[in-house]
Simulated scan of single mutants.
Amino acid sequence: MLDFMRPQYYAPRISAVDPAELRDRGVRGAIVDLDNTLVGFSSTAPLAEDADWVARANEAGVRVVVLTNNGTPWAAGVARDLGVPCIAKARKPLPHGFRRALRVLGLAAHEAIVIGDQLFTDVLGAKLAGLAVILVEPIVRRDPWNTLPLRWAEGIVLRGVPRV
């Protein structure tokens, strides 16, 4: 069970993921979480290096779609400013949102990868939808109150797992 919960890859930040390397591995699309993956908790916009990652991904031929449980107009606005589609209120980890993202990208599961910062939403949802996943460290260590119990459980599941 615990192996099913573990991501295939780790990265300190989304900006550390090389889009050209993804493309070389056959990845044509990235399904990217918003909160604490592209934009830090309580921030209003992505940092320059994270916004630049989206542009680099597109240049490398890796299309990006934002998949978020956030349903605010702000979430759609961030994606619009980045020039990518947004699937809000995704209800992760349920696989429906991930499948919808694949339809938006026009790709099969083996052609896409999920990038997110949470084990119980991004990683579990990706695995349930048959997608590979990169777990990134959260941009900031502060989370909304409803995420704190999941972060605690995440620490238990990932204890002793090397993040390389």
Rank of each mutant, 00 (worst) to 15 (best):
Q118W: 11
E59M: 07
R142M: 12
V114L: 05
V164F: 09
P85E: 03
D81F: 03
R13Q: 13
F41I: 08
I14G: 08
P46K: 07
A101I: 01
D52V: 04
T147W: 07
C86W: 10
P93H: 09
P144D: 08
R91I: 13
K89Y: 03
R91A: 14
E21P: 00
V136A: 06
G125W: 12
I87V: 14
P144M: 08
V78M: 02
H96T: 14
I14D: 06
R142Y: 04
R23F: 05
A79G: 06
A20W: 10
L67F: 12
V62W: 10
K92Y: 05
Y9P: 06
P144H: 01
G71C: 10
A55T: 14
D35C: 10
L102I: 06
P162W: 01
P7N: 05
L131I: 04
R28V: 01
A57R: 03
E137M: 06
P73V: 05
R23I: 04
A30Y: 08
R63I: 00
L47G: 15
E49W: 12
V133A: 15
A90R: 00
D35E: 02
V27Q: 01
L148H: 10
D35T: 05
G97L: 09
I156T: 12
D33L: 06
D143N: 12
R25V: 04
P138H: 07
G61S: 06
D50C: 02
E154F: 11
V27T: 11
L2C: 13
I113P: 00
G29Q: 09
I139S: 02
E154G: 01
A129D: 10
D33K: 02
W74G: 09
E21G: 14
A30I: 03
R159K: 15
W74C: 01
P7I: 07
D33R: 02
L2D: 14
L94G: 11
W152L: 13
A109L: 01
V123P: 11
A129W: 08
L150P: 02
H110M: 03
L38I: 09
T37S: 07
V164W: 11
T37Q: 07
L82R: 03
K89I: 02
G40E: 14
A132K: 15
V114F: 04
G116R: 05
I156L: 14
D24W: 02
H110Q: 13
R141N: 14
V136M: 09
I14W: 11
V65H: 03
G97C: 05
I115R: 00
A51M: 06
G97M: 06
A57P: 00
V164Q: 12
P144E: 09
P46L: 13
V114P: 09
V65Y: 02
E137I: 01
R28G: 00
P93R: 06
A75G: 07
C86P: 00
G26V: 08
T44M: 14
D35I: 03
A48R: 15
L38W: 05
G26N: 07
L22D: 04
L148A: 13
D35Q: 01
R100F: 13
V66G: 01
V164P: 00
E137P: 00
N70C: 13
F4V: 07
R103S: 15
A57Q: 05
D33F: 02
A75W: 12
G40F: 10
D143W: 14
Y9M: 12
P73T: 06
I31T: 04
D35G: 02
R99K: 13
V62C: 08
P144A: 11
V64L: 06
Q118I: 09
I156D: 00
V157K: 10
F120N: 04
A20V: 12
R28M: 11
